[in-house]
Structures are given as structure tokens and as C-alpha cells.
Design a binder for these strands. Structure first.
Lengths: 213, 213
DNA sequence: TTGCCCATGTAATTTGTTACATGATTTA
DNA sequence: TAAATCATGTAACAAATTACATGGGCAA
């Protein structure tokens, strides 16, 4: 009975599944609450959609029968709505979540790295300042991750979210190390560029002829 | 607020700057070449736009006076075009690249982590299999990064791209370690110790990835 | 009583993708 | 000469954002 329906399930964009995923944990929530939760947790390893899109996805999920809502106020328009996942929604989500082929490789959009890549256009000190600033921001992010983890750890049903956040914590730790190494690389590069560089570091194979003139 | 020209520069989407960035290295290139370069390099730390969007951005950049093209064939439509950056384009790009505030924190969209986060919906073995598969894919990606780096290292003007790729190499190494740790966490959670037989993979000190040097 | 947070939604717009159309050049 | 790769572009569509409109509840 399952073979013909699978095609349709796969057609949803990742954001829809992410929102449905938020609903797959015990309890009903409003779109607003979902947004806050995404901001404080999902965004660390995935991404937090705009609130307007969350509402749009909730409508779509309800149409598909994957989610159901209960109005708190009167039956008028724009009454407060709490959403919950349906059995059909849970089943569809489980199918999607078990399909690795859908996942593809992780996508990273690293604004700082893009700027380092364009380092030939910037002042060396400016570049260093940007990297240093990134170090600070990352440290703050790490604190946010830990905060989220501390909160998630209090809930008994959130073992997997805690795992994901633990991964995120380590990921931020790694990012800090990566950034330190980058800073060191940057220093090494400047040493080669003839700024009266007394610290002539050993050169790797392939990196010959500094060509500063 | 007081300077009127700065505002306009900032209005371009990151993709436009990334494409202009590709043009900021010596030499002229076609849209097609830009796409291949983005696929083999940019995508590791930023993102590779669709070819149709590259053409669209090139048109926009030319309109703005940030890029200029030379037709190889006759003046007809759809002749081969090579693009180069203009001085105005270089200046605008330098301004953008020096502005950290534009960058924002790095965005990660990690499909596997989203699935781990939803681990309560999947079979434990399925989850393990997905993580293991990710390990393999990441190893392959790492090889691609190294390939790109070997190529970039031959060009004298590509010192910063090499730095970015070096960062990417370390990042993939870190990803491998993170994934191993995740696997261990998963084991701890499920208490799989007796199920899969001898999955007593020794955790060697530091050597989880193939290092070519 | 002003301002902030909660809460939902619409509209306009931008961003980006896939599918398609077209043809030149290279290679087997 | 057939196929692959190079090369450019259009059109339709999907995804997602920002700006806006609306209003309740609560605290300073």
C-alpha cells in the first residue's frame, strides 16, 4: 500500500519537513512558538525560516493532513492556533527522515571565508580584524548553543535534540580552532609578502615565487 | 546615512559579490568557466549558484559597470563572452569585502543533523547507517578539496584561495571527527553494545582521516 | 498610555532553481 | 558523423524574505 504514495511525500521542500519536525515532539504549539524554538535550536545545525514562511508551511501541512490545528479563541479569522502533528504526518516525516539520499552534503555559507578568499582586495589588518571579530561572535554563539542544550536536557523526550546540540557545541569548538589556525596562516602569508618580514617561515612545496612586484 | 552612494553598493545579494569575486582574479572568463570554478572551489566554503543565475548576475554586474565583456564571435546574440572586472567593480567589491557587518554568522544546512535531531522517528540502525554514509561522503569531499588545493597552489596569484581551501580541508577533517563522536553518542544512547557484533572500532589517537603527507 | 511582546496573516518582491531551446567545437 | 562538452540564454516556477496590516494582553 505504500509504494505509490511515496513520490508525493518527497515533493515537499526541506523547510516543510523541518517545521513538521518541530511538531513531532510532544505538545502543541503556535507558529510563533515554533519560530522562537527554531531560532534557539534548529538554526545551529539547520536554519530558521522566517515567521511568515512558518505560517505558510503550517497551512500547507494542514492541507496535506500532516498537521492539525485547534483554535483557542472564537472561530473568527486570526484566532490563536495551536498545531499538532497527525499520525499521517508522523509517518510521512519518518519516511523522509530515513531517506539519506534526500539529504545531500551539508551546505555551508561562510561569509568570513568568502572575504578571506578575496583577501587580495583587503588591507591585511582589516582582514585580521574581521577574523578576530569572528572569533568573538563564535564564542557568543557557543554560549547560546550551551544555553539551548541546558534547556533541552531538562526535557525527557528530547534526547535526540540534545545530541544534535552536542554536535553543534563541538562544531563551534572546532570552528574556533579553525579560525585560530586561519589567523596563523594569515600571519604566515604576510610574512612572505615582504613587510620587512624577519620571520621567514618554511615554505611548502608549490608555494614558490612570492611575486611582490 | 549621510553618504548616498554607499547604500547602493550594499544592495547586491551575496551571490552577485561572489561572482564578481570570481572575476577579481587575473584573467577573463566565460560564465561557463565561472560555474566550473565555483563548483570545484567556492562551494566548499560558500556556495555554487546555478549556471543560469551566474549568467543573470553577470548581466547585472555589467549593467552596473562592475564587469565588462568581450565577445569572441560576431556581434550576434549568444556569442561567446569573456568577462572581466572593471576598476569600479574592484573598488565596490573591496568595499563590500571589508565590511564584516554584512557577513553575519556562517549558515550551515546540515541534512544529516536534521535527521539525527529527528532520531526518535527512525530505526537506530537506519540512523547509524546514515551517519556512516556521511562519513564516506565527507572523506570523498575531503579528497576533492585537496585536489582543488593542489590545483590552486600552482597559481601564484591564488594565495588567498589556497588559504580558504586549507581552511576547508581542516573543516572537513573536523567534520569527520565530529561525525565519529556523533556515532559514539548514538551508541551510548541506544545501548547497542551487544547488537551489531564486533563494532569495536579502535579509536586511534588522531588518525581518523587519510592524510596525504 | 505608551511601548513591548504575543500572535496571525497578506502582498510585493527577490532569489534561485529546473527545464527547455539553441548552436558551436572538440573528440572518438 | 555521432556524442560529449562548451557555451549562452529564456521561461516557468518555487522558495523565501521584507514590509505591512491587525489586534490582544501586559507592564512601566
Amino acid at each position: 500500500m505504500t509504494s505509490s504514495q511515496k513520490q508525493k511525500k518527497q515533493e515537499l521542500p526541506p523547510t516543510a519537513w523541518a517545521v513538521l519536525g518541530l511538531l513531532s515532539f510532544p505538545g502543541e504549539r503556535t507558529g510563533y512558538e515554533l519560530k522562537k524554538w527554531a531560532d534557539s535550536s534548529l538554526r545551529f545545525f539547520y536554519w530558521s525560516p522566517a515567521i511568515s514562511q512558518i505560517y505558510a508551511e503550517l497551512r500547507r501541512l494542514e492541507e496535506l493532513g500532516y498537521a492539525a490545528s485547534v483554535r483557542s479563541g472564537p472561530e473568527e479569522a486570526r484566532a490563536k492556533r495551536r498545531y499538532g502533528i497527525t499520525p499521517a504526518g508522523r509517518e510521512a516525516l519518518a519516511g523522509w527522515a530515513s531517506d539519506v539520499s534526500e539529504a545531500g552534503p551539508p551546505v555551508l555559507k561562510h561569509g568570513l571565508l568568502l572575504r578571506v578568499w578575496l583577501g587580495h582586495l583587503a588591507e591585511p589588518e582589516r582582514l585580521r580584524a574581521m577574523v578576530t571579530e569572528h572569533l568573538e561572535r563564535t564564542t557568543e554563539e557557543l554560549a547560546s548553543v550551551r544555553e539551548a542544550m541546558a534547556h533541552a536536557a531538562t526535557e525527557p523526550d528530547w534526547a535526540f535534540p540534545v545530541l544534535a546540540l552536542r554536535w553543534s557545541e563541538r562544531q563551534h569548538l572546532a570552528e574556533l580552532e579553525l579560525t585560530q589556525a586561519l589567523l596563523a596562516d594569515l600571519d604566515g602569508l604576510e610574512g612572505l609578502e615582504g613587510l620587512g618580514g624577519p620571520h621567514a617561515q618554511e615554505r611548502q612545496s608549490g608555494g614558490d615565487a612570492p611575486t611582490t612586484g
